[in-house]
Design a binder for these strands. Structure first.
Lengths: 119, 119
DNA sequence: TTCGATGTTCGCTGAACATCGAACAACCTA
DNA sequence: TAGGTTGTTCGATGTTCAGCGAACATCGAA
């Protein structure tokens, strides 16, 4: 269940890798969901692709340094690496997320039932 | 000398296309040079690739909506579409250019002799 | 131990992309 | 008219990428 090179070091992040990771609508949709700051796992993403494809996209986000992942038993929890990305590329994530929200980029990425939370 | 679909309309620009165009170090280098706001042509770019490759990259930037091009005789003048991009995706270009400057992304893209200008 | 849930990895495919050199078109100039 | 300059387009080549299903590993629960 482990990736070869997970959670790269902050100073290994490159601008072009981050931009490449964000140049796919599905991945932008994932990042928008992750932008709540919470930890998520696969079940939290309702995407119109096979689970192997979802795994691939989440791996791209992780190796680009956009997400942090942590394993617990058979689940892996994923969270946006906002502070690290902000430290490395100030304002980039905010700017992209704002634009993505305005245009609803990756809007086909939703959450399933998600029981209204806050309880 | 004409491209099929040049200078796309402002509201045709998509976030992911722009980010994809900016996910290549060479193209980021070109954009950094273009960030002076001036018009440039091929001769202004000293890049370590064949001229057909340079043509390709400039076309990618143009179809993504990042540059404006204008033909005059046998030369084509290229300029950054900063106002349009800013209108469509506020702060994005500034943010990316700042990060690119800090990391010197695309630093291998330079200007040749460039006779000190301002005369 | 057996089953279900959760993700990863492994081929595999078709599409897209970066790169080159060569050929071409358009224009300017001598 | 003959060259030279400027940039585009056209194969060709090799790489990367998105996508799938199938197989696998791991864990918790029955």
């Amino acid at each position: 269940m482990r990736h070869a090179d997970q959670n790269p070091d902050v100073d290994q992040l490159t601008l072009t890798d981050v931009l490449a990771a964000l140049s796919d609508p599905l991945r932008v949709g994932l990042v928008r969901l992750l932008a709540d700051g919470e930890e998520h796992n696969f079940g939290d993403f309702a995407v119109p692709v096979a689970k192997s494809t979802l795994s691939h996209h989440l791996k791209v986000l992780n190796t680009a340094g956009l997400t942090w992942r942590r394993e617990e038993g058979t689940r892996c929890y994923i969270r946006l690496r906002r502070d690290d990305v902000d430290a490395r590329f100030p304002d980039l994530l905010d700017t992209v997320l704002s634009a993505a929200d305005r245009d609803d980029v990756g809007g086909h990425v939703t959450t399933p039932g998600k029981p209204a939370a806050e309880c």
